[in-house]
Design a protein around this nucleic acid. Structure first.
Lengths: 341, 341
DNA sequence: TGTTAGCACTCTAACAAGTCGAGTGCTAAC
DNA sequence: GTTAGCACTCGACTTGTTAGAGTGCTAACA
């Protein structure tokens, strides 16, 4: 059996209707809803076929049909038309450029959640070609050295080092020069054992400090471990009965709270190449365990060269994909543009 | 009517029983539960009195009694005996000293939530007599100056300053000395306009930079605005039917997610003097709107001199106060001790 | 006067039975 | 290939019934 033109139209009508109402769709509804001028009986026959083909299913006999995951997939891939509405509101809200990154991202998540009425997440941008730009040692106390590390993109990391011997200003200056000459402009991969050995040798009796600094640098550059994820709109799960029973809600809320569990989304998104950076996961497709009953839509944004992050919307499978995609796309562009200026 | 000895014992038995079972307590249960050797009929008379006095109430006629807020309050103030159990588990979990503060706190919240089966929050410590310890300007790019500020307690803040003129090493050194001589050891209140003017004058044509640094310092010292709060165990709300209906759960989850809404707790706790730093809010007493159906127990911890934070547990009014208090007290002491070593 | 047994009463939770309506699948006619 | 018609199914809702827990009140008792 084939998915001919008419079946396609009927399927589309079923999905559209279900997305709007959230109720199983009956044959009579479709008979009126479409321009096909077919009786409900004919529609019923077609629906039986569509069910056999796996695009729709019946929650129980004598109920209407709802889309299956396969049906949603077809809808998202082929049937969806993007909407250009609901755009103004967001523009205003985000245009004020927050000076603190975390505030900006929290704000973005909130706006997205409020706008779409689904749950939203956003990951802080991660660097992917982290290079050292600048290292500085300063004495704070007699035995405490402050290590300041600046990496590409002007991200600053600090670390406090306690040393066993008191260091003179002169020694400190020498160490500063030593470290900067050897390490500036290098990425983590490029710093090898030979180089470290050479530096330790040149540092002589202060090799202990060099080792400490190297540790701090390693810590600072590898950002992956400390992936920051901001979320908003957890309460929206309650708006959709199919997600709101205790068990499911509890699982969703937990996953959403333990933000680390969402990192799969970020990994997945940053690596894959896809349609303009928008990725749709339906039901079982999602990489996040505990969200099998949801759909997730993600987008990748890029604040500055190489600084990529992920935005995501999590909602029921019957989410308004068109609205979600256009919202995500808009936010993505706003973020992309924000720091280009 | 007075709350005599017998009424007191009966009330205590009612509350104890209700905390254990979560079910309204009937007269027959109490008749067997206590050593008073009274018939259920007598208990019924006493219960009617206790109801009149406002300590207990009936969900509906022909149901048993449950404690009122006033009843809980009496219980917490007078009847409760602290338990010393459930202590070992936690000791192990926290003893490994995390080097990163935020990890430590997240971990603490998680342990607390798991241990108690209620929702937990913890606020990052706030400084209350923030003094400058060290300032350093470094040139990163031709026109970019990195400002590193170390305040008491070795908290480090950074700020990037873009300048309109290129600065020589010598100028930078001079500015460093100027800033440190004037500002070290001072708190925000002690830095006044006169001092700033004097510094600007000494800086001559570089007064613009001094102004920028002062801004950065002000930003770094006032920590209040950016109160960090970590939460865990939101799913535990679902374990208690009286909190788990859609409306209430949705409200609780929202409040818990918008951590700013919990800051009332922190304010309240840090200012008040109270029983060993443990504070119990029952029902309507809570300062957090949207948690009127809960009880909240908080404690204040002090990491280092002046670095105070708040730990809190949020659960149903029929929470196991004894367990919660001993858990909080334990964690408080662990945190208090942690950085003393 | 305080305590208790007894009893009628109330209210909820749980179950069973019945009804309604939406929607289906199938068949026969067009 | 399409449609009208019809018997059937199933969930949602309503109603009635019952069982059980618990109460308040009264009258008797120590």
């Amino acid at each position: 059996m084939q998915l001919d033109e008419r079946k396609y139209i009927i399927l589309q009508a079923i999905i559209r209707n279900y997305l709007e109402t959230g109720e199983p769709v009956g044959s009579r509804t479709i008979s009126k809803y479409t321009d096909l001028n077919l009786s409900s009986a004919t529609i019923r026959n077609e629906m039986a076929d569509l069910e056999e083909l796996g695009y729709i299913l019946q929650p129980h006999t004598s109920a209407g049909r709802i889309p299956s995951d396969k049906g949603y997939r077809l809808y998202v891939d082929k049937m969806m038309e993007e909407k250009e509405r609901e755009v103004e509101e967001m523009k205003e809200m985000l245009l004020e450029k927050e000076d603190k990154m975390d505030h900006l991202l929290k704000q973005a998540a909130k706006v997205l959640a409020n706008n779409t009425e689904y749950a939203a997440m956003i990951s802080a941008p991660q660097y992917h070609r982290n290079k050292l730009k600048f290292i500085q040692l300063s004495r704070v106390d007699a035995r405490q050295i402050l290590v300041v590390i600046v990496v590409e993109g002007n991200v600053i990391k600090n670390s406090m080092l306690t040393v066993s011997e008191e260091l003179s200003d002169e020694t400190l200056l020498k160490l500063n020069i030593l470290l900067n000459t050897h390490l500036n402009g290098l990425s983590l991969e490029e710093i090898n054992l030979g180089m470290i050995a050479a530096m330790k040798q040149q540092a002589g009796i202060h090799s202990e400090i060099v080792a400490g600094v190297i540790d701090a640098v390693a810590e600072a550059i590898k950002a992956d471990e400390d992936l920051e994820i901001y979320t908003s709109g957890a309460k929206n799960f309650f708006k959709y009965p199919e997600l709101a029973d205790h068990e499911r809600a509890s699982e969703l809320i937990t996953t959403f709270e333990e933000k680390q569990l969402l990192s799969e989304l970020v990994q997945d998104n940053l690596s894959g190449d896809n349609n303009m950076g928008i990725q749709v996961y339906i039901g079982d497709e999602t990489p996040v365990a505990g969200m099998k009953d949801c759909s997730i839509v993600t987008a990748t944004y890029e604040l500055d060269a190489g600084m990529k992050g992920t935005i995501g919307i999590i909602g029921p499978k019957r989410m308004d994909y068109e609205k979600v995609v256009s919202n995500l796309r808009l936010l993505k562009h706003q973020l992309d543009d924000l720091y280009k200026k």
